[in-house]
Design a protein around this nucleic acid. Sequence first.
DNA 1: TCTACTAGCGAACAGTGTTCGCGTCAAGTA
DNA 2: TACTTGACGCGAACACTGTTCGCTAGTAGA
Lengths: 268, 268
Amino acid sequence: MTDPRAVTRAGGPRAAQAKGTAQAPAEPLPVPPWRPRPREIRARTPISLERIVDVALAIVDAEGTEGVTMRRVANELGTGPASLYAYVDSREELLQRVHERVIEEVPFPDFDALGWQEGVRQFALSCHDVYRRHADIALLSFADIPTTAKSLQGAEDLLASMLRGNVPVHVAAWALDRISLYIAADAYEGWLMQVRFGGATPEESEELGRAYFDQVGDFFASLPRERFPMMTSHLQEMMEGDGEERFRFGIDMFIAGIASQVPNQVPN
Amino acid sequence: MTDPRAVTRAGGPRAAQAKGTAQAPAEPLPVPPWRPRPREIRARTPISLERIVDVALAIVDAEGTEGVTMRRVANELGTGPASLYAYVDSREELLQRVHERVIEEVPFPDFDALGWQEGVRQFALSCHDVYRRHADIALLSFADIPTTAKSLQGAEDLLASMLRGNVPVHVAAWALDRISLYIAADAYEGWLMQVRFGGATPEESEELGRAYFDQVGDFFASLPRERFPMMTSHLQEMMEGDGEERFRFGIDMFIAGIASQVPNQVPN
DNA sequence: TCTACTAGCGAACAGTGTTCGCGTCAAGTA
DNA sequence: TACTTGACGCGAACACTGTTCGCTAGTAGA
């Protein structure tokens, strides 16, 4: 059974963000047959797929995907839950569309200028950043193959950049897949932690987080030294670093791992 | 804000599996204050926390965590949902206990004999394998710090093995955290794909999966060549490899990344 | 034996995603 | 312009969900 996840699950606009480059004429791309087509309905009310996704995204940002209820989205649009099913087959599909919207936000770096290592790094950080700003939406990226024009262009550019840097084809293709998985996983985990701390304000949340980590540190410090000599003596190093630092550390390990597979070139 | 995830979220028995080494006297470890203590109740019925977890785990294995309903678990035990709340604070806590049970299954390799690189590899594969056998339970490992004796021992041994191999302390600590995240993410994604294919029997599922991947391949093949030269010309390589191969590829990239940080030693 | 307590749980609450089928209104035809 | 047609909109209901309340009943201790 082969696996098509070589295409990164995270995408974004090619250049439309930083530079003022004119958009391509947007020749329509083929339609992926495995995901539902947007319904084509002549709206008679102010509701539309776009507005539904708008509302759902706002709820996700405020409370996470769990807060997205058909009733609630419908209410916010002044109607009942049944009306949404004209535009969307299920809650699941609605959330997929929200995810699709979110990944369009990811800006793509100038791969030509940066070289593949820094290009991959920048992409990963941007993508992670976007996910972190949208609660637990990263969870929707698992096992998903993005097929929007922007996503595809991003994957193409990333791939081209790596190939130009002599990364073997199969390494480049698979590495993109693996890195995307890692990005989504970390973003989701970050959201989970943030939620666990609770706290109405960011400061309160920060304080509760610190209290939690203190507890964890105390727990590990209290382990019997003779049975856990490494963990107790290196507790300091284990507890160091915030989420962002750890994320970057992982990305850099990935990049170093890829670099070690580039022929005729010393990894460091 | 520091972050305690240096401790791997996946754990397992030290040697109790392969070798016949006598178990340690099991001196009680400190109790982590941040997670709920098992209720201490004198059961008057055949239900107990252990039996509840048994039933829940069986449901997870058969259908995934979504199938675990309080009513259903209760029914299977011949009682009503309210009875479960004497042993467990919430459905969430029940699933956490199921996860705790599952990670106890992970066997630990003989790190002393293998060296850190092969040790990490074996551990990752074992852990992944266990998760893959228990539906989407890997999702419960996100943002979780396992604190069972076995898990802690596993983390200790893994850490010790890497330090013996001259991996810098902070690299070893963080790497364990990152690799654990990657393992869980891939296991979860694997389950999602499996579910997407549906199919009652494994053969049927395999066939549906193949059909799905064919669709995806066709889609990418149908992209305009001039706009997506890399993806269209390297489709073969992108589609190659099943989930397991890709997982191993990622682990090996991680290991190579760590190795590149070992001083006084050529990575390959 | 009597009391005090607590494990066990039936019933209910406040939600959830989704479906059915009826009204209604706009477009297409005569 | 009048009529017919059909699809959109959505109120109401279905079959669930996690969780709580407070009553019943049986055991442990006095």
